[in-house]
C-alpha cells in the first residue's frame, strides 16, 4: 500500500494492472487517481467492504479497458512464463464468454486423447513489474512471503520485482530450513525497501490485521468523486511520517 500511495504521488499514468488473481484497494486507488489505462483481473472488489467504487465507476463509463479472467487462468498464464513455455492448458472455462474476449487464449484438441477432447490453452504472461509487500528481506537480497506462493510465481514471471518489507534481517534466510520454504530467492528480486506497517489498511499475516473500519470508511467515501478526492488529500498526498521516503 505504501508503494502504491508513492506511485500516486509520483502521478504515474498508463498502468496496465494484472490481478493475481483479484484486485482490491490498491487498484481502486490507482484507478481513481487516474493512473490506470487497463485492468486485467478475475475480479475487482473490496471483499467484505463491498464493491470497489472507483473501479466500478471507471468500468461503467469505459474510462478504463477491462479484460476479464477467471482466477486459475491468471495463475496458469504466469506459471507458463515461470516454466519458460509459451502456453499452458487449463480445464474448464470452455463455453464462457471470457474466452471470446481473449486473443491470448485458444481452444485446441488434447493431442494425447483418443477422441475429441477440446481444452483451453492460456498464453504465457510476463509482467514488466511485480510489486508487493512482505514481512522480511535479508542481507542476501531474499524476501520471505510465507505461504503466499503466488507471489513467488509473479516474481519468477516478472521482468523486475520490487518488494517493500516490514523488517530487514541479518544473514541469509535460505540457510534456515524452516524459513526457506517461504522465501523468494534474491535471483528474482530487483529491489527492496523498508516500509514499516506498509500494508496498512491491509494486513500482514502474523503481524497485523486488516483495518476493517478504515476500509468501510473508504468504501463509503469513494462512492463519489468528491469523497474520493478528499480521501486522497487526507491519506495519500501527505506522506505518513512513519514511512521512509519512496
Amino acid at each position: 500500500m505504501d508503494a502504491v500511495r508513492a506511485l500516486i504521488r509520483r502521478k504515474i499514468t498508463g498502468l496496465k494492472l494484472l490481478g493475481v488473481p483479484v484486485l482490491g484497494l490498491c487498484a481502486d486507488l490507482l484507478i481513481g487517481a487516474g493512473c490506470v489505462s487497463e485492468v486485467h483481473s478475475s475480479a475487482v472488489s473490496l471483499g467484505e467492504a463491498g464493491l470497489a467504487p472507483r473501479f466500478t465507476d471507471a468500468a461503467e463509463r469505459a474510462d478504463i479497458t477491462v479484460v476479464d479472467y477467471t482466477c486459475p487462468a491468471v495463475h496458469t498464464a504466469l506459471q507458463a512464463t515461470e516454466k519458460g513455455v509459451p502456453y499452458m492448458p487449463l480445464r474448464g472455462v470452455l463455453g464462457s464468454d471470457l474466452v471470446g474476449a481473449h486473443a491470448d487464449w485458444q481452444v485446441a484438441q488434447n493431442p494425447f486423447a483418443g477422441g475429441a477432447d477440446p481444452i483451453l490453452l492460456v498464453a504465457a504472461i510476463a509482467p514488466d513489474v511485480a510489486l508487493f509487500h512482505a514481512r522480511w528481506a535479508d542481507e542476501a537480497g531474499n524476501v520471505w512471503v510465507g505461504r503466499r506462493r503466488e507471489l513467488a510465481t509473479i516474481a519468477h514471471a516478472a521482468r523486475h520485482t520490487y518488494v517493500t518489507v516490514e523488517e530487514f534481517r541479518a544473514g541469509d534466510m535460505l540457510e534456515d530450513e524452516l524459513l526457506a520454504p517461504g522465501v523468494i530467492g534474491s535471483t528474482y528480486v530487483s529491489g527492496t525497501a523498508r516500509a514499516e506497517r506498509g500494508a496498512w489498511p491491509l494486513g500482514v499475516a502474523g503481524v497485523y490485521g486488516i483495518d476493517d473500519t478504515h476500509l468501510a470508511m473508504y468504501a463509503k467515501a469513494a462512492r463519489t468523486r468528491e469523497g474520493f478526492e478528499q480521501y486522497l488529500r487526507e491519506f495519500v498526498w501527505q506522506e505518513r511520517k512513519s514511512s521512509l521516503p519512496a
Partner: peptide, 17 residues
C-alpha cells in the same frame, strides 16, 4: 443493464470441476 460487477472469480473453472 449497464452495471459492472466485481467479476467472475474462479467460477468458470469451479463450475466445471
Amino acid at each position: 443493464a449497464g452495471r459492472r460487477f466485481p467479476g467472475s472469480f474462479g467460477s468458470a473453472f469451479m463450475y466445471f470441476t
